[in-house]
């Protein structure tokens, strides 16, 4: 049936993409290099600062924060206390701080980039038509694939890790921001316009506050995706708990792999509950 295809030469798609990546790397190296250097240094510094705080203080702050964030309930606070102490006990504290830095910075950037794009999408049907398939693409492409251009652009370390996380984790924030704004009831929009709101007054006084819950749900997902990217990013040299998982995988050490994995789970649960309680 596909006989006729025999005569069609293989389209050099892979070569094309490689060529494109090379060109981008070449042309934009004047941007990529300073980003890699400055931003890399900044991230090292951040995680260094975090690691230099005595762990007991960090743990206490988190526990107290958890207690209040969860509406003065003890569950999350107790879990945080035990979980963090366990990680400390396993001598993974420094890795935890690296991982946390990576997640924190990636998530912040995702939100800073994602929310405005979501707003743009909600305001323009054309933007929505263009951006939606791109988001689908970004989310369905296996996350590993992003590592390759990330390395091409930013070499190895934390910075390409953040880049890969950005590509992988931004879509939920964009989608939910768009959704949240579009869900605001027609009558409320009319009300704000009928009193003579400007576009930005409408956005900041009505649409964003009304969409807040939905946007926060998107951000929560983004943070979780960023965290899941951490293990993958360790393949290109991002430090942290992910690197421990990877090295134990390479050496087939079940025990250490499990401990590092457990650390990630504990961090994930704490971050998830924290961001969710911010939403209430």
């Amino acid at each position: 049936m596909l006989d006729f295809m025999e005569n069609v030469p293989v389209i050099p798609l892979a070569e094309g993409v490689s060529w494109l990546t090379d060109r981008i790397t070449e042309i934009f190296s004047f941007i990529f290099e300073p980003i890699q250097n400055q931003f890399g240094a900044f991230m090292e510094w951040t995680s260094g600062q975090l690691a230099s705080i005595p762990p007991i203080i960090v743990i206490l702050l988190v526990v107290i924060g958890a207690f209040f964030a969860s509406g003065k309930k003890f569950g999350l606070a107790a879990f945080s206390l035990v979980g963090l102490l366990l990680i400390y006990n396993q001598e993974s504290w420094e890795q935890l701080m690296s991982t946390f830095t990576l997640v924190l910075i990636s998530s912040l950037l995702c939100v800073i980039i994602g929310v405005p794009i979501g707003i743009l999408m909600s305001k323009s049907r054309i933007a929505q038509a263009i951006i939606t398939p791109i988001l689908d693409f970004m989310q369905t492409m296996p996350a590993f694939v992003y590592l390759i251009p990330a390395v091409a652009f930013f070499s190895i370390g934390m910075v390409p890790g953040v880049f890969a996380s950005l590509v992988f984790a931004t879509p939920p924030t964009v989608r939910f921001t768009n959704l949240g704004i579009r869900q605001v009831s027609e009558e409320l929009i009319e009300a704000s316009e009928s009193f003579g709101s400007t576009g930005s007054q409408k956005l900041f006084k009505v649409e964003m506050p009304m969409a807040k819950q939905t946007i926060m749900a998107g951000i929560n997902q983004t943070v979780m995706l960023a965290l899941s990217m951490v293990v993958i990013a360790s393949m290109i040299g991002a430090p942290g708990l992910g690197r421990d998982v990877l090295s134990s995988l390479q050496r087939a050490e079940v025990g250490t792999g499990f401990v590092a994995g457990l650390g990630i789970v504990i961090l994930a649960i704490i971050i998830d509950r924290f961001t969710q309680s911010l939403n209430k």
């Binding site: 009831s185 009558e187 009319e190 009300a191 704000s192 009928s194 009193f195 003579g196 006084k205 009304m210």
Partner: peptide, 29 residues
């Protein structure tokens, strides 16, 4: 802003604002 105001069938009050701050809305903007 200055000459016409509208009252809506389903009230169209902003649920995230208090009664007072809803009422202030027109002047606020």
């Amino acid at each position: 802003r200055e000459k016409m105001s509208m009252v809506f069938q389903r009230f169209a009050l902003f649920p995230h604002r208090t009664v007072l701050s809803n009422t202030e809305f027109g002047l606020e903007i």
